[in-house]
Structure formats: structure tokens, C-alpha cells
């Protein structure tokens, strides 16, 4: 099957430091792949290269076989590459609903409509409400975003990303900084999206149990290089990966799987 997304020797250097080093990876359609690797392995940089936030020093990203070299981040979003940010990045002084509504508005391509009242677009507001219900935030729709807890903001991020309705979702540590009680809801949300079956998801995560639970495949980045890419079982049994990253964690989780 033709991969929906692949990279060809993707490389970026910052001065002497090579943050992402000749990565070749392929992403089958409607697949959930997790990216793991120690801090500083280049995971987020890799995301930034795919989403267009950064330009590669060498190599290229291909979406449905088409080179993205000349595409800006905005164009990539419009083509179908949506991403969430590791650092919560929402509109703090707008209501929760308005945050999502703006994202839906972008998806519906209502960009230069100067004379109609925004509330007259009922379908957009309804869609936004629907998405808020999906991420279990519907009871907060009129709250100002700045008053949400960290976990709720992360959920809002996901709702905004879903609003864009892109084929590929790039989720950068959706549970980062969350309290333990909040993690399961995010897990549930991602599982729901996966079960709906029309999205390709690329996920950066540190929580191994969550990754093993959700992913179809796992790729491991280490010092900017692609160390391994395969099914969860393959990765867990891969010696190099164990040495490089999983270390002591490995045993514990292997027993979990068994």
C-alpha cells in the first residue's frame, strides 16, 4: 500500500548539531504510529519538519507521494496535516467554544466573509459543540480558556485539531504535564478517534502503557536517527532499543504484555 506520509533522508542541522539525521519512515494510511525516544532524541523536531514549522537541511517529506518542500505550515495544514503542540497553545482569552469554532471555521473555509454575523453560521457552532462533547468539555463551553485546568486545555487542543478534520493528526505528547487522573480521558479520546477509523495518527508519547495499548506500530528515535520501526512486539524485543532507551522499563512492561 502506498504510504500516506513518508520521509526521504530527512535531516536538519542546527550549527554542528544534527537534530534529525537521515530519517526514512513510512506511514501507512489509517494507522496509529507512536514515536518514542529519550528527551532530546529529536521527536518534536521531527514533527516540526513534517508540519512545516522547520525547513529540513536535507531530505524531504512526502504527503501522498507529493513533495512538501515548497509548502508552508499553513498550506500543509490545509492539505491535511494537522498538529497539536507539546506546549498548550490555545486562545487564552476566548471562550472554549470560540476556540473550537475558529478551527471549524477554518475547516469550512470561511475566511473572508466580512458582512454576515458569525453567529448566523449555525452549522459551525453546532459542529464545534459536537467536538467539545467528544472530548468531554461540553460543560465548559462558555468558560474562558484561561480558567481551564491544564488537562482540559489539552483536551481543547485535541478538539481544535479534530475540528480541522485533517487526514493526518500529529499529536505531540497529548498527556504532557497531566495529572494521573486526567490521562485516561485523553486515552479514551484518542481511542475513540482511532475507532472511528478515518484518521492517520502520529503520536509522540512517553507513557509506555498508553503506547502499547494504542499503537499499531512504534518507531524509535535516538540522537536524531531512526533506530527501529515496527510492531509493538518487535520494538519491545529489539535489543538495540532496549539498550538505547527502554532500559529497566522494559522488563516491567514485557510482563504487562504477557
Amino acid at each position: 500500500m502506498e504510504p500516506i506520509l513518508h520521509t526521504d533522508n530527512l535531516t536538519i542541522r542546527f550549527g554542528g548539531h544534527t537534530a534529525v539525521d537521515r530519517v526514512n519512515f513510512q506511514m501507512p494510511e489509517k494507522h496509529l504510529k507512536a514515536i518514542i525516544g529519550p528527551n532530546g532524541a529529536g521527536k518534536t523536531t521531527f514533527f516540526n519538519l513534517i508540519s512545516g514549522e522547520l525547513k529540513p537541511t536535507a531530505g524531504d517529506v512526502y504527503f501522498k507521494g507529493q513533495s512538501l518542500a515548497q509548502k508552508s505550515a499553513i498550506e500543509r495544514t490545509r492539505m491535511g496535516l494537522g498538529r497539536s503542540f507539546q506546549i498548550t497553545n490555545v486562545f487564552p482569552n476566548l471562550t472554549v467554544l470560540e476556540n473550537v469554532r475558529l478551527a471549524v471555521q477554518s475547516k469550512e473555509k470561511i475566511r473572508y466573509q466580512l458582512f454576515r454575523h458569525f453567529k448566523s453560521y449555525k452549522a459551525i457552532t453546532e459542529k464545534a459543540e459536537e467536538l467539545l462533547a467528544l472530548v468531554l468539555l461540553d460543560n465548559k463551553r462558555d468558560a474562558l480558556t484561561t480558567m481551564l485546568s491544564h488537562g482540559e486545555k489539552r483536551k481543547l487542543e485535541i478538539a481544535m485539531l479534530l475540528a480541522l478534520d485533517t487526514e493526518i493528526l500529529l499529536l505531540d505528547e497529548p498527556t504532557a504535564g497531566m495529572s494521573l487522573e486526567e490521562v485516561p480521558t485523553i486515552l479514551e479520546v484518542i481511542r475513540t478517534i482511532k475507532q472511528q477509523g478515518d484518521k492517520t495518527i502520529l503520536l509522540i508519547e512517553h507513557k509506555m502503557d498508553m503506547i502499547l495499548d494504542l499503537s499499531d506500530s512504534i518507531m524509535v528515535l535516538f540522537n536524531g536517527q531512526l533506530l527501529a520501526d515496527g510492531s509493538p512486539e518487535e520494538i519491545m524485543n529489539n535489543d538495540t532499543v532496549q539498550h538505547a532507551y527502554l532500559g529497566g522499563l522494559y522488563d516491567e512492561h514485557l510482563t504487562d504484555i504477557k
Partner: peptide
């Protein structure tokens, strides 16, 4: 009417967080 139009809402979004508005595809 202008500031309450869909475009006006995007202006407000730009004020609140320009980078985020960009990543929404505007």
C-alpha cells in the same frame, strides 16, 4: 458588523495568538 463577522473573529484570534491562528490554517 465587521468585527462580528467571521473575518472579524479571525482578527480577534490574531490579537490573542497569532501563531496559533496560523496553525489553524489562516
Amino acid at each position: 458588523r465587521f468585527v462580528n463577522s467571521p473575518t472579524g473573529r479571525i482578527l480577534i484570534a490574531v490579537r490573542e495568538n497569532e501563531q496559533r491562528t496560523k496553525s489553524l490554517g489562516f
